[in-house]
Design a protein around this nucleic acid. Structure first.
Lengths: 340, 340
DNA sequence: TTGAAAGCGCTACCAT
DNA sequence: ATGGTAGCGCTTTCAA
């Protein structure tokens, strides 16, 4: 106010009408100039006057007003990545976002936190997004999908383990990961297989299907599965290792490579040899695992690239006729190294 | 309706006027009922009629129209977490989002990808957010801050290494990390110190200031610093290890714990003893490091919690008078384990 | 207790 | 080449 050049908060925010007034033209002209509307010719002097006025006022168009008028948005709602779901998944989401931005969509993360599926769908629908990509964690129901479509969403895509009627589904079958791990262990002669269950909340989405797959594969091969709850901390790992020999296991699938590193260290500290006494296999194929001694066997997961999914979204937005389909998002294969 | 509930795309999206028509009341009444407006009494039968009509049509209010009318939003713009900036930073961002959501803000990630600071500020301003939290990576200038404030943003907060005039700044001085690491090594008698420089793009934001801090600390102690470019892959690490003895270093600061694990394995494969021949210190204090042999010394980083930052944002939004200040976001201290 | 109507900021049609 | 104006969906006086 006094001597600071920042009369920021006091004056109200400039509108196109303010620009028009300052430039001595109509609001229409301002709109034409600022949007470079092709269907209309505006003289160069006028253009300059308008631009200067806009500049001087620090005018910035109001996106909500614009899309209200336009009747549609370029907004894609994505769920906030809340889970510690591993670098793979994180990278996939980052890719997806980047690709969508490149296709000129505005990616919005809007909290589904503490909302159930239908409530979340409703609050998304309020934004009138042109597309929604929902993580499996949000229990999107067919009704939720319908609400979104009724609100104008042209593409509704789910990402997760279940399919949802009415939506394009990218199914990530985590059971496959557990199944591959156990199949690998069985092939190498193991029959008593522990499966590490992380205790971090939110990870059940992944760990439950993984152990289910493990059970299925074990049943098919006549092997035994034992669930081993384990928080990602050193002491519980040591405790588990201390009673390891009583468990009578000859192999363990550790949910992922991080847990494998945790458990391997503890086992080795107990003098348990890997793989002779106990075989260890992780999942995710992180570089980290390759750096262990012995080098960690793992289940490599191929995720569809985020770009691919972005392209699907874009296609469905442009051509909403397309029948909702179920796509496979994931491939899994065991990678043999030294720990099995 | 009949038996397929999916008359989705064909009918246009219902507005409050549609609800009013179906319920046989005015739009005003619909608004009163659906918002539970306290200052107005609506009879119970009317309320029910309105609610049923809304339900039947699948009516969802239009957020843009509402905020246009209201003249303000509850939107907070956050940059998309684009960088592989480590789990610490990721967790901080996730916390921040969750806390903001709990305070009833709508968190929006809006791509600053490929935009320079002022362009990004402008595109954010179009959304008329009530607050903006900008990562240091976006070169937000005082002018950008001004644009945002003129557009109605009540809080502009930056997060990064530099401070920006006009904004509340949370400064994360990465130099401190490098300085602590080197000081620790110097204390333990080392004088020829390598500093690993990741080659992943985007990480310079962190690695450059870290080595700068390392240089400063080394200069103060009469030690030598040698930059060691290293991509996060096994072969380059092996190559670096192969020429390690020619480098004449007695210690290395590896940027973070992940790179430490990578390099330690390679050094050990060359028969180089840690810490006798070469001391190794990482940063971030991941559990991973504690699991190594020898257990990895590291620089522990204390980040302000996301909740704290969310509270500041909220306070400034409610009380925009508050003077922009510079806060310290980070504390760093060396943790001695076995590798140094 | 309810309705009519103004107007938020913007764009696109139709005049001039 | 430029201006007038309707109207996107919503909330909120003001009247009835």
């Amino acid at each position: 106010m006094s001597q600071t050049p920042k009369q920021t908060a006091d004056r109200s925010v400039p509108t196109s009408a303010d620009v028009a007034r300052l430039a001595g033209v109509s609001r229409a002209t301002v709109s034409y100039v600022l949007n470079n509307t092709a269907s209309v010719r505006i003289s160069e002097p006028t253009r300059r006057r308008v631009r200067e006025a806009a500049e001087e006022l620090g005018y910035v168009p109001h996106a909500a007003a614009r899309s209200l008028r336009a009747g549609h948005t370029r907004m894609v709602v994505l769920p906030p990545a809340t889970l510690p779901a591993g670098p793979l998944y994180g990278r996939f989401l980052a890719e997806l976002q980047a690709a969508l931005r490149r296709l000129d969509y505005t990616v919005v993360h809007y909290g589904s936190l503490g909302l159930d599926g239908d409530e979340a769908a409703r609050s998304w629908a309020e934004l009138r997004p042109v597309a929604v990509v929902a993580l499996g964690e949000v229990g999107l129901t067919p009704h939720g999908v319908d609400v979104l479509k009724r609100s104008g969403a042209r593409a509704v895509v789910t990402l997760g383990s279940r399919r949802v009627a009415g939506a394009h589904c990218f199914v990530m079958d985590q059971r496959e990961v557990g199944a591959r791990a156990v199949a690998h262990l069985v092939e190498r002669g193991r029959r008593a297989i522990g499966v590490v269950m992380p205790q971090e909340s939110g990870l059940e989405r992944f760990s439950e299907p993984r152990i289910e797959g493990a059970r299925r594969a074990a049943a098919a091969a006549g092997a035994r599965i034992e669930a081993l709850p384990l928080p990602y901390e050193e002491e519980p790992a040591a405790a588990l290792a201390a009673r390891w020999r009583q468990l009578g296991l000859d192999a363990v699938f550790t949910y992922n490579d991080d847990y494998a590193v945790l458990l391997m260290r503890a086992l080795q500290d107990e003098g348990i040899t890997i793989p002779a006494e106990t075989a260890v296999i992780g999942a995710d194929d992180l570089l980290l695992g390759r750096l262990q001694r012995p080098r960690l066997s793992t289940v490599h997961i191929d995720l569809v690239t985020g770009r691919k999914l972005a392209e699907l979204v874009d296609r469905v937005v442009r051509e909403p006729g397309e029948e909702p389909a179920v796509h496979d998002l994931m491939g899994a294969r065991a990678v043999h190294r030294e720990s099995t």
